[in-house]
Amino acid sequence: MQTLEIAGREFTSRLFMGTGKFSSNEIMKRAIEASGTQMVTVAMKRIELDDEQDDMLGHIMSPDICLLPNTSGVRDAEEAVFAAQMSREAFGTNWLKLEIHPDPRYLLPDSTETLKATEQLVKLGFNVLPYCQADPTLCKRLEEAGAAAVMPLGAPIGSNKGLRTRDFLQIIIEQSGVPVVVDAGIGAPSHAAEAMEMGASACLVNTAIAVAGDPVAMAVAFKQAVEAGRMAYEAGLGAVSDGMVAEASSPLTAFLLD
């Protein structure tokens, strides 16, 4: 399999993992290890002064893993830039999953604010990976703004519905000059394999692993699905049908004499 390069860093695993919704840090840690992932998202929260401090990061940190802090919770570009600066200070990394969703119900990304924030954050030296609508034009705009990759959604976040935006993802993959990471909506390993077969650079999976009956086993399933899909893409998929249109009685090319 070809290695994936984003912002100068190489990844041999094309499965990115989110850390939300696990029943315990311990299970999360084991799932991360089992998945072989090298890119893990984290969020930020205000410290509760009276609570005992858990060591969530300690369960993730490893030299093989690139931490991808997100800006979850921000509602516009201004808040995103502030969150990004906090994240760089807290985690000591320029990597950033930019997500701006003012809508608390479906958590759908705000395209206008996302583009605006990307432009500003790139200037501030961040490796910006924006979570965005599966909008091919927007993705080109984000690329021009300097995004290190684009992360279009497959379906509403957490819905596990698979690649509902398939036709648009296909166009994004075809046009993009930066890696395309399919984010949100991937509910089963078959969905991840499908995205990879289409030529996606990577998949980001969270809910489908975290809420599985056995998250560790599901992490392995996703690892294998992403690898299988990528290998199939690189190997060149065979004919789906034989692509032949029925012969008509009067051939179209009869005029060609030589």
Partner: peptide
Amino acid sequence: IVVIKAACGG
């Protein structure tokens, strides 16, 4: 004053 730290998230 706001103090933040890492949390689980996707």
